[in-house]
Design a protein around this nucleic acid. Structure first.
Length: 565
RNA sequence: GCGCUUGUGGCUCAAUUGGAUAGAGCAUCAGACUUCGGAUCUGAGGGUUAGAGGUUCGAGUCCUCUCAGGCGUACCA
C-alpha cells in the first residue's frame, strides 16, 4: 500500500478543484497524534507565490477537499498546517487486503531496473575481518530489498584475487605442499608464515617475485596453484556467508582478475578520447579542479585498482546492462569513487543515464571510540566475532531446560547473528558506531531481540487461540487506528529505504511498529475473558498483520525469526 | 596545506530530507502483576542540537566563519 501517495492524491484533487496551478508538495507523517495521521505543509510555501496569507490558502484547499473515502477529517492549525485524519473504515479495509496477500499488499516496481550491488569484496590473501561485516550485510540488505520491490538485482562480489602478494602466497603454498592441495585452515597464519619466509629467505623472496610474473604471463602450473588457493580461500568466505545468512554465492563472484584482459583496452580508450596524460612516467587522467590525477597505469606498466574499477564499470553498465550501480564500500574510499565515476562518465564507459553511487559506511569502533581491534592490536576475524555472538546469545536464553541442546544451538545462532546484524543495520550507515555486546543482546530498546520477542508473543497468542479467524477488522480506538496506519506505512518505508540505501529506516520503522503494538497489546486484551467475539477477531487480525510485517522486515535485513524464544 | 566528513541530555542512537513544543533506549527516580509470555507497560527529571553570524514565514537540517575529532591526499587495494 503506497499510503502516502493515496493521501497526496486527495491533496492533488483539492488543488485542482481550488484552481491552484502549482504541484503540491508531498504530505508528511504527523509529528504528533493530536495532529492527525498526516499533515500537509505546502500552504506556507505557496504564500509568496500566490500573494495570499497561508491560512487563507489552507482554507481554500480545505474547502475543495473531498472528505469521504480516504481522508475523513481535516483541520487547519498553526500558521497554515493542514492536519489530516484517515478514514478508519478505509484503514480496516486496506489492512484486510494486506493480510490476505503474501506480499502484504506491497506492489512490485512497475518499471523494474537492473541494479548491480557491489558488496563484501574480501581479499583472498587474508581472512575476512570485522571491516567486511558492514559491506557484506548492508549490501545484502540492499539487494534483498530491491529484489523484494521488484528490481532485477545482480549481486557482485569483487574479490581481491590479484596482485603482488599472491606470488608470495603461491610460492609458499608450493613449498609446503608439492601438489598445492594444502588445506589452508588458518589463512591469517598462512599469510604471516609466508611473509616471514619472504623477509627471512632471499631465495624464497626471489622465487615469489618470479611467481608473480609467471602467474601474470599465464604459466599453467602456477595458475593451477593460484586457482587452488583462491578456491580454498573462497571456501572460508562462504563459511562466513553461511553463518551470516547472506545471499552471496560463487555465481556472484567477479574477481579482480576477471577484468585483467580489459585493462589495456581501458587505457586505449582513455587515450583515444584524449583524456590520458603522462605525468612522472605514469599514465593519468586529470580531472577539472583536482590536483591529484587518477593514475591508471604505473611507470612500470602495471595497472592499478582505478583501472580495474573502470573496467568493472564498463562491464556492469554495458555487458550486464545495469541502470544503477551501487558500491557498498567504506567511506574512506569516497575520494577514489568520486574520481573513478567521473572518469567513467567522461570517457563514456558508462552511459549518462546510469546512476553510479558509493554507498559509504563508517567504521566500527570499540567502547572507547577507537577502531575495533583484538587485545594485542590485531584485526578481529569476522568468524571469531560471529562465533562469540552465538556463545553470548546462548547465555541469554532463559528456561534452558525446556529445550534440547540442539534446539538451543539453533536458537543461539539465530539470536546471536541476528543481534550483530541488527545492531549494525540499525545505525545510520554513514556514521561510525560503537560496538557493544550488552546493548545488542538486550531485550530492551531498538534491538533484534525486542522484535523477536514481540513476534514470539504473537505466535504464542495464536498457539493458544488455535482456531480459524473469522471476522473483520474494526478500528475501535486511537491505538488501533495508529497501529493500522503504521502497518500500512510499510511500503513507503521500504521504498524510501531502497532509494537512500539506508537499512536503518527499516529498523526504525520496525521499532516504532513494535513499540506501538506492545502498547496496543497491553491495553487491548485479545483472548482474555469478556472480550467480545468480533473485537477478538479484529485484534487477532491486527496482531497477525503486525507479526507478518515484523517477519517480512527482518527477512529483508537477512534476520530469521523464531516462533518461540 | 588542500579536500571529504562528523559534532544532538551522563552514555548509545533517532528526527519523515526545511515544518508545529528536537524524540527513543540505557542509566537515575516513581508506579502497574490472580502474566492472552513482566524478556512488558505507564510516568518523572535530564537539551542554548560544539560556538558565532546569515538565508527563510519556519533551521539540528541550507550558506559563511571559528573550535574540536576522524579520514583521505600520485604510482597498495
Amino acid at each position: 500500500m503506497k499510503l502516502k501517495s493515496q493521501i497526496n492524491n486527495v491533496i492533488k484533487d483539492a488543488f485542482k478543484n481550488a484552481g491552484i496551478e502549482y504541484e503540491p508538495m508531498s504530505v508528511s507523517e504527523a509529528t504528533k497524534p493530536e495532529f492527525g495521521d498526516y499533515q500537509f505543509n505546502g500552504a506556507m510555501a505557496l504564500s509568496k507565490k500566490l500573494g495570499k496569507n497561508p491560512r487563507e490558502i489552507a482554507q481554500n484547499i480545505l474547502d475543495n477537499m473531498e472528505l469521504t473515502k480516504v481522508v475523513n477529517k481535516a483541520q487547519i492549525a498553526g500558521p497554515g498546517f493542514i492536519n489530516l485524519w484517515i478514514n478508519p473504515d478505509w484503514l480496516a479495509l486496506e489492512c484486510e487486503k494486506a493480510i490476505s496477500d503474501d506480499r502484504l499488499g506491497i506492489s512490485k516496481n512497475d518499471k523494474p531496473q537492473k541494479v548491480v550491488v557491489d558488496y563484501s569484496g574480501p581479499n583472498m590473501a587474508k581472512q575476512m575481518h570485522v571491516g567486511h561485516l558492514r559491506s557484506t550485510i548492508i549490501g545484502d540488505t540492499l539487494s534483498n530489498l530491491l529484489t523484494f520491490l521488484g528490481d532485477e538485482v545482480i549481486r557482485q562480489n569483487h574479490i581481491g584475487d590479484w596482485g603482488t602478494q599472491f606470488g608470495m602466497l603461491i610460492a609458499y603454498l608450493e613449498m609446503k605442499d608439492e601438489d598445492g592441495l594444502v588445506s589452508l585452515k588458518d589463512l591469517e597464519q598462512f599469510y604471516k608464515d609466508a611473509k616471514g619466509e619472504f623477509d627471512a629467505n632471499a631465495d624464497f623472496a626471489n622465487r615469489a617475485r618470479e611467481y608473480v610474473v609467471k602467474i601474470q604471463s599465464g604459466d599453467e602450473h602456477c595458475l593451477e596453484l593460484w586457482k587452488n588457493f583462491i578456491d580454498i580461500s573462497l571456501g572460508h568466505c562462504e563459511e562466513v556467508y553461511g553463518k551470516l545468512n547472506v545471499n552471496l554465492t560463487r555465481d556472484d563472484v567477479r574477481a579482480e582478475s576477471f577484468y585483467n584482459d580489459s585493462l589495456s583496452k581501458v587505457i586505449e580508450v582513455l587515450d583515444d578520447k584524449g583524456i590520458l596524460k603522462e605525468s612522472n612516467g605514469a599514465k593519468c587522467v586529470f580531472l577539472d579542479g583536482e590536483e591529484i590525477p587518477v593514475i591508471v597505469q604505473k611507470g612500470d606498466g602495471g595497472y592499478l585498482y582505478a583501472t580495474t574499477d573502470l573496467a568493472a564499470l564498463w562491464y556492469r553498465a554495458n555487458e550486464l546492462g545495469a541502470k544503477r550501480i551501487s558500491y557498498v564500500v567504506d567511506a574512506r574510499q569516497g575520494g577514489h569513487f568520486k574520481q573513478v565515476f567521473k572518469v567513467a562518465k567522461d570517457a563514456g564507459f558508462v552511459p549518462e543515464d546510469v546512476k553510479l553511487e558509493h554507498i559509504a559506511f563508517g567504521t566500527m569502533m570499540d567502547k572507547g571510540g577507537k577502531p575495533f581491534k583484538t587485545r594485542d592490536g590485531g584485526t578481529v576475524k569476522l568468524i571469531d566475532l560471529l562465533d562469540e555472538a552465538v556463545i553470548k546469545a546462548k547465555e541469554t536464553i532463559k528456561n534452558r531446560d525446556e529445550y534440547t541442546s540442539q534446539q538451543i544451538d539453533e536458537l543461539a545462532k539465530i539470536i546471536g547473528i541476528g543481534a550483530v546484524k541488527y545492531a549494525d543495520l540499525a545505525i545510520n550507515r554513514e556514521s561510525n558506531y560503537i560496538f557493544n555486546w550488552d546493548k545488542m543482546l538486550s531485550f530492551e530498546g531498538n534491538t533484534s531481540l525486542y522484535m523477536q520477542y514481540a513476534y514470539a508473543r504473537i505466535q504464542s497468542i495464536f498457539r493458544k487461540y488455535n482456531s480459524t479467524i473469522d471476522g473483520k477488522i474494526i478500528i475501535s480506538d486511537e491505538l488501533e487506528h495508529r497501529l493500522a496506519v503504521m502497518l500500512l506505512r510499510f511500503e513507503d518505508v521500504l521504498s524510501r529505504s531502497a532509494e537512500d540505501a539506508s537499512p536503518n529506516q527499516i529498523t526504525t520503522y520496525l521499532y516504532e511498529l513494535v513499540t506501538l503494538f506492545m502498547r496496543f497489546y497491553e491495553q487491548n486484551p485479545i483472548l482474555k475473558d469478556g472480550v467480545k467475539d468480533d473485537i477478538k477477531m479484529s485484534r487477532l487480525k491486527l496482531a497477525d498483520l503486525t507479526a507478518k510485517t515484523i517477519k517480512q522486515g527482518l527477512d529483508i535485513l537477512g534476520i530469521k525469526v523464531v516462533d518461540k524464544l
